[in-house]
Design a protein around this nucleic acid. Structure first.
Lengths: 232, 232
DNA sequence: ACTCCTTTCGTACACCGTACGAATTACCGT
DNA sequence: ACGGTAATTCGTACGGTGTACGAAAGGAGT
């Protein structure tokens, strides 16, 4: 019969039961990992390690790495707030919504690419789609025109954010970014006489991305407005 | 002393000198492989095999797999013809150019993603940029407005083509594509009462991609036209 | 305590990008 | 024709990847 051992708690190793795995936990860890390491850097092994789990444990909750990417995508899309639109005129509401989308895509640089290469059927993606459709529907668009307008806006934001992410590059090393920009500019200058218009306008020095984004967005909103005029 | 062996040619194995490796040959093979296998399917080993070369031989002409993707991208961009614009009004010229871009991106489904995730500094990409800039410059745009308009158009085409490729999916197996579409439609119907506007307008049955593309493009062109009106 | 089902995960396989250095080939001055 | 040198080819190896398979552990109900 073992005599009572005093303060055995301190000798026994901590019975820290690690929290059970779950789709949610995996999804959140995936987003974190993607933010740090990018799409190429997300591997099932690293993801499992971050969760203190065996690699193959993940496959209880997820069919493949691709599934993880889909889950992470919808999780990030959820960060685009879709409230506070009440009472705004359509143009302001749409502008606000696209701006928020861009912000989230900058916070998660992997997002634009994933959004443009897979069907967006997650619950949060659907909810946001519904909002954008409803906003433009309220503005007076309908049918194929409505679909086209939503598409144009969506593709613009994704494309712009992707470009911005490319040039902001590994923004964690501003030295590398500056170097890339400088060498690209040199490359452009070198071909200047062959491409005069390009050389004069595509100056990579300009990094006022906010204003540029807004300018392009205005083109789209103007276009939508133009389609509203002629009652067709 | 070996006596002359008659018709030794037929016995000796053919001294087929395989054509030397070169950047062009690698680039062309890469495009072919990408068309068949997609970005994920392009590996240095497979690429080398297609050229009857050892894997590491490629690295004499190319620094990394990423380099191959950059080369292939510019090679594919070169397929977008940039002639036959003389005398066209700007709207027709731009429309034609964007349409051609889309066509090439459908022929090379990997192209939109690559174009949107890396700086496009290849010679053919620069040449086409120059053309688009010049066209809109001729229409009357300038400065930041010009840059914004070019960006909006570019992102729209890339985004639309990416979407189209996603839904056309592995169009080599039309059965798989139909299945994906059907299951996605069901999924949408299931969430219909939560997303009424979406459910009414985003019908995946419609596959008249040509018309939809044109409709979205018109939004953009209308927007550009609107910016031309007020001499600012 | 025994059963049964869920969850965990160790091992293994085929494949990947590419560093390194040896082997081969091509070229050129003599 | 020959020797030397530089360019090119590529075999091997290392550390990574996704995931199939099946054994082990855990938990719940009786």
């Amino acid at each position: 019969m073992p005599r009572p051992r005093p303060s055995a708690i301190w000798l026994r190793e901590e019975p820290v039961r690690k929290p059970r795995l779950s789709r949610e936990r995996i999804t959140r860890a995936a987003v974190e990992l993607l933010d740090v390491e990018g799409v190429e850097g997300l591997s099932m092994r690293r993801l499992a390690a971050r969760l203190d789990a065996g690699t193959m444990s993940l496959y209880q909750y997820v069919g493949s790495r691709e599934d993880v990417l889909d889950l992470a995508t919808d999780e990030a899309v959820a960060e685009i707030a879709i409230d506070d639109v009440e009472g705004l005129p359509w143009r302001a509401a749409v502008g606000q919504q696209m701006g928020r989308g861009r912000q989230v895509m900058l916070r998660h640089p992997w997002l634009p690419t994933l959004m443009s290469t897979r069907p967006l059927l997650g619950p949060h993606a659907l909810a946001r789609s519904e909002l954008v459709y409803a906003l433009l529907r309220g503005a007076g668009l309908d049918g194929a025109r409505l679909t086209a307008a939503v598409g144009a806006l969506t593709y613009y934001v994704q494309g712009y954010a992707a470009m911005e992410n490319t040039w902001r590059g590994l923004r964690h090393e501003p030295a590398a970014e500056a170097d890339l920009r400088r060498r690209a500019q040199e490359h452009l200058d070198r071909a200047a006489e062959r491409h005069p218009t390009l050389a004069r306008h595509a100056d990579l020095g300009n990094d006022d991305f906010d204003a540029s984004f807004q300018l392009g967005l205005d083109v789209l909103l103007d276009g939508i407005e133009a389609q509203l005029g002629p009652r067709s």
